[in-house]
Nucleic acid binder design. Sequence first.
DNA 1: AATTTTCGATTACAACTGTAGTCTAAAGCG
DNA 2: CGCTTTAGACTACAGTTGTAATCGAAAATT
Lengths: 125, 125
Amino acid sequence: MSEQITKAEFEVMDVLWAKSPLAASEIADRLSTSNSWSLKTVKTLLSRLVDKGAADHETEGRRFLYYPIITRQHYAQSVTSRLADQLFGGRAAPLVAHLAEGRGLTPDDLYELEQLIKDLKREYD
Amino acid sequence: MSEQITKAEFEVMDVLWAKSPLAASEIADRLSTSNSWSLKTVKTLLSRLVDKGAADHETEGRRFLYYPIITRQHYAQSVTSRLADQLFGGRAAPLVAHLAEGRGLTPDDLYELEQLIKDLKREYD
DNA sequence: AATTTTCGATTACAACTGTAGTCTAAAGCG
DNA sequence: CGCTTTAGACTACAGTTGTAATCGAAAATT
């Protein structure tokens, strides 16, 4: 199911998550700020994403317009979940603690988290 | 610096984090419950971890006793941080939200988080 | 219509990973 | 003191990933 999306492939997906459908050349353009991949490279990555079922394309004239199949939500969730399981026995608090320790959460972060927790607690009634 | 530790290598590190120093055969034994790797495989993984600077060994008689160089703390922090950056622009709340949505946080998780946040807020005074 | 450009498809190729096997020397066994 | 076991060192080999290049067909240009 949820296949291994590699680091390079993720960047391509991130472009598609921001806007789709897009042609390969458009995707390459949007990636050109962050990377220096040739168009060929981007096309290879796109093919692999299609093979893996993470994206697909429709045909427009003689070129393809790509769009994501798996959602960013879904992907984020599965990766986060896997990380939490592996590193923290599935518990959220140590994960957040590590974030806090590693880089400091801003007061905004804390406020946001507080609200989130309030909401989640309300669900338990 | 903090090198790429692969999935298989991580499992070996996890054994070392639990107890060290250990000989290769002991490590293989401890892994045998979760995996079915041959001793050779474990030794290869150990060598690679040493190459990557994640572990090292001391000599005892004619065999090696391995121990971790990078700590679990450090590793967890760097992986968590990278994930948060990549997926959530470095913000913690969406990360927790995803955990919550994906699998449900237990009331205990929430309580723990609440305490953690309280502590962190206190630091801002 | 002939030439150039542009697509996607196929192929390349080295580094990294998973998963060992072989080689060599030392250590213990008989 | 030879024979077997055991350790680490070195080698292997297919699959994945990063990073393209080449090929053949269709489209655009001149």
